[in-house]
Amino acid sequence: MEIALVGLVAVFFAVAVYLLLSKSIIRMLLGIVVIGNAVNLVLFTAGRLTAEVPPIIPAGEYVPLAGSANPLPQALILTAIVIGFALFAFLLVLGYRAYQELDADNTDTMRLAEPEDAPRPPLSY
C-alpha cells in the first residue's frame, strides 16, 4: 500500500521542482509548500502505513489496539509541518517585500546583491 504513496510523492516532487525552477517568486513559494508536503509524505511512508487506526490508547487499556499506526513518524512530521509553515511564512513575506522593494517578481532581475555590471577586479597592486 506504500507504493501508491510512492507514486503520489513522485508527482508532488515533480510539481514542486518544476515550480521552484520558475523565475517567478510566487510560483517558487507554491513550490515550497508542495515540496514540504512531499517530504512529509515521504517521512510518513518511510514509517510504513497502516489503515485508519490512530496511535491512541483507548481508555482503560495500557497499549494501543493492534495494527495501529506508527506514532513516531507522525510526531516527526508534526514537527516538520510546523517548521515548514514557519519557513514558508517567512519566505512568503520575504518574497512579498522583495517584490515591493525591488519591483520584481522575476528573480532574474533581482541583481542588487550580485550586480550584473559588477566592476572588474583591479589589476593594480
Partner: peptide, 16 residues
C-alpha cells in the same frame, strides 16, 4: 534593499 535580494537567494537555497 540589497538585503532582501540576498535573503531571497539565501532563503530559498537553504530551505531546500
Amino acid at each position: 534593499k540589497v538585503q532582501l535580494d540576498g535573503a531571497v537567494k539565501y532563503g530559498f537555497l537553504n530551505f531546500l
